[in-house]
């Protein structure tokens, strides 16, 4: 499994991305930018690229990250590793991905709890409907709210 038509993001989606719009407009957030990495078909590259992304976020002194994974199945291997690597570095993270009935994560770890399922189709098969399982504003709001809570909790734990 990778990205089916209902989850894939077109070039048009990227220029009108609701996640970016929401976060860049939030006055409580200093949005540093967007890190993109590819989901390889090789396991070792999946681990390398997702770990580099986490190390990068730490180098940026990020307090938090919203992590979006386009697709499901083997893409969740990189996704899970990224959340794990961020968690280990005490960077608060909220995840967004398609799960639904047939895309439950194939791997799991301590940091996979805060993932929002953006699946909107009800059946257990890929609906092959362009745009159906794309990120919606509501999904992004949920992720940002979750991230803010986690960052606040991290602050408290550090005694700020």
């Amino acid at each position: 499994m990778g990205v089916g038509p209902s989850a894939k993001e077109t070039s048009l989606h990227h220029i009108r991305d609701p996640l970016l719009d929401l976060i860049s407009a939030d006055v409580d957030i200093d949005l540093l930018g967007i890190i993109l990495f590819g989901s390889s078909d090789k396991f070792s590259e999946k681990i390398l690229a997702s770990t580099r992304a986490a190390i990068w976020a730490q180098g940026m002194r990020a307090d938090g990250a919203v992590v979006f994974c386009e697709g499901s199945g083997n893409n969740h291997v990189d996704f899970a590793n990224l959340l794990n690597q961020l968690g280990k570095r005490n960077i608060a993270a909220a995840g967004l991905t398609v799960m639904g009935k047939n895309g439950q994560p194939v791997v799991n770890n301590d940091y996979m709890g805060d993932v929002i399922d953006i699946c909107k189709s009800s059946g257990s098969v890929e609906p092959c409907l362009l745009g159906q399982n794309n990120l919606a504003v509501t999904d992004c709001r949920k992720a940002l709210a979750m991230l803010k809570l986690k960052m606040r909790k991290a602050d408290r734990e550090r005694g700020n």
Binding site: V27, D30, I35, A62, D63, L82
Partner: peptide, 14 residues
């Protein structure tokens, strides 16, 4: 002074 946040996007690469 505000919370520093990044968006990380895993994209197609296979």
């Amino acid at each position: 002074g505000k919370k520093r946040v990044v968006i990380i996007r895993e994209v197609a690469g296979q």
